[in-house]
Simulated assay, not measured.
Amino acid sequence: MPESHFGSTGTIDIDDIDKQLLRLLQTQARMSITELAERVNLSATPCARRIKRLEDANIITGYHTKTDAQKLGYPLAVFIAVSMDRHTAERFEQFERSVQSFEEVVSCSIVTGRTEDYLIKVRVRDMAHYEEFLLHRLNRIEGVAQVHTSFELREVFSRSVV
């Protein structure tokens, strides 16, 4: 197993076995240590140590259940680009706290290369739900100056880094 030391970028060094473990856990986080170890040709104890090392280094930040938004009644995915009226830390912190509290918001990023400041992805039941979200919650956050909406026709794929 590689030494648990940090590389020049401040991240731990990971090898091909670590990457295999990450890929397996990303597709099936409930896989047992025994099965993971078999898949990467290790015994259970070294496999468990590798996973613990990845968790301790915050490369593995949690284990999540992936759900089907359509089957849960949220078939409409919306990307909303948001412009703020002022670029102050306080204004941005307030916006971020507000959107994080909205259950419809599934991601929020500060972006560059556009006139907008944020790009958020929202899941809603239908257009009426989107209108309520936009008019009665998002646009009421202090500092929101402008929004531009794009509707997702179809997600081609979504994956994690490794």
Rank of each mutant, 00 (worst) to 15 (best):
R91K: 06
M127W: 11
K121S: 09
E131I: 13
R123C: 01
G113F: 07
R91W: 03
K121P: 04
F133C: 00
V111A: 03
E116Q: 07
A128K: 15
H136W: 03
F95E: 04
R97N: 06
L134R: 10
S101V: 09
C108M: 09
R140S: 05
V111E: 13
E116F: 04
R125H: 11
G143M: 01
E96W: 06
V111P: 02
S107G: 14
G113W: 12
T115V: 07
L134T: 10
S107L: 11
S109C: 10
E132D: 11
E116T: 00
E96I: 12
F133G: 00
S107Q: 09
F133R: 00
T112M: 08
K121G: 10
T115L: 06
T115N: 08
G113I: 14
E116S: 03
R140K: 15
S109L: 13
A128H: 15
E96P: 07
E131P: 03
T112W: 07
Q100D: 14
F102L: 13
S109T: 12
N139S: 05
D126C: 12
E132L: 06
A128N: 14
R137P: 01
S101N: 12
R137D: 12
Y118S: 11
F102G: 02
H129M: 08
R97T: 01
H129P: 00
C108E: 05
M127Q: 13
Y130S: 01
R91S: 09
V122A: 03
M127T: 13
R125M: 10
Y118T: 05
C108F: 03
R97W: 03
L119I: 15
E131N: 06
H136S: 12
R137N: 14
Q100L: 13
A89H: 09
T115K: 11
L119W: 07
S101H: 09
D126Y: 09
R140E: 07
E103H: 15
H129R: 10
